[in-house]
């Protein structure tokens, strides 16, 4: 979709969100070989439009949860960058005081309620958050992000069944990036059956869109979130997209042979950030100088966060046995 239908300010903010996620993750990829970030990292480079487009519709009071590939969701929801970087470095100043790492991000003040790396496992928890919010009479929407493999888990179906049963204000966002680690969809799901159709079988409003087109993502999420706020119940959104780098780690891995270089190049042509940038320049929403300024501002912020993370202290031994039980 080349037509820029959203307000200019919305586009500026969404573009910045996407660029910020991209630049943070590229910085992680650059520094990861130093072996100071000693935890698995799952980068979402190439998939930024889904996080940015969905979260642009949420307020701070709304909730977001995610799985193993959660950096983008955390940042798009307003998660603190310094706390995230410190967490990746295992520091006491991290968002989990070093006990979580990249796979367990949280920022309660931003409404990012947590990410955990067991496929589909946060889906029922997000449904429960929506259920609890409803029981407490709170007007909040909960968004749960997950990948294409999550719909192969029984708990996904159990969760969506309950969400429909109780008309819960929860949005299921499936980022279909075609692969689960190295396994393509073709070895995991029957050919010709779209994930969105599977969701429809549960009686939930379900839509499929281009996950690399942020306008489309934004508009579909906007409609779903409005419905949820008005008591219309859950919506399932499937966005097709593509992860550029390896499943886990900082590198490209097209040499492994589980996917082709041409497939990767094709998706790279559809880079959500480059495409939006082109259109923003074309429509004079941003000029080259604006974009350069934005990039250098982000670079400085990221640099600060890295320095903060590197200079922060590690947790002391006394914290090992702390927080086993809540008081």
């Amino acid at each position: 979709m080349d037509n820029l239908e959203l307000p200019k300010e919305t586009y500026k903010s969404i573009y910045k969100t996407m660029l910020r996620i991209r630049m943070v993750e590229e910085k992680i990829a650059e520094l990861y070989p130093e072996q100071e970030m000693r935890c698995p990292v799952h980068l979402c480079i190439g998939q930024e439009a889904v996080a940015a487009g969905v979260c642009a519709n949420l307020s701070r009071n709304d909730y977001v949860m995610s799985g193993h590939r959660s950096h983008g969701h955390y940042l798009a929801k307003g998660g603190d960058l310094k706390a995230m970087m410190a967490e990746l470095y295992g520091k006491a100043t991290g968002c989990c005081q070093g006990k979580g790492g990249s796979m367990h991000l949280v920022d309660l003040s931003a409404g990012f309620l947590g990410a955990t790396p067991i496929v589909a496992s946060t889906i029922p928890i997000a449904v429960g958050v929506a259920f609890g919010s409803m029981m407490r009479g709170q007007q909040r929407v909960t968004v749960i992000f997950f990948g294409d493999a999550a719909v192969e888990e029984g708990v996904f179906h159990e969760s969506i069944n309950f969400a429909v049963l109780k008309r819960l204000p929860v949005i299921f966002v499936c980022e279909n990036n075609l692969y689960s680690v190295y396994s393509p969809l073709s070895v995991r799901q029957p050919e010709g059956r779209e994930i969105v159709e599977l969701a429809k079988g549960h009686g939930v409003e379900s839509y499929q869109g281009d996950g690399n087109d942020v306008t489309q993502v934004y508009k579909m999420a906007e409609k779903a979130i409005r419905r949820a706020r008005q008591g219309g119940g859950p919506t399932f959104l499937e966005f097709k997209t593509y992860r550029w780098r390896e499943h886990c780690g900082p590198y490209y891995d097209n040499d492994l042979g589980y996917r082709t270089e041409s497939e990767f190049q094709e998706w790279k042509q559809r880079c959500p950030i480059e495409n939006l940038k082109k259109n923003l320049l074309r429509d004079d929403i941003l000029c080259n100088q604006d974009i350069e300024d934005m990039a250098s501002e982000l670079e400085a912020e990221i640099e600060d966060a890295i320095i903060f993370a590197k200079e922060s202290p590690f947790p002391e031994e006394q914290h090992l046995l702390e927080h086993i039980y809540a008081p």
Partner: peptide, 11 residues
């Protein structure tokens, strides 16, 4: 999981 989520929401 629903119970866990609802507990996070204060139940």
């Amino acid at each position: 999981g629903v119970a866990i989520g609802s507990a996070l929401a204060g139940m």
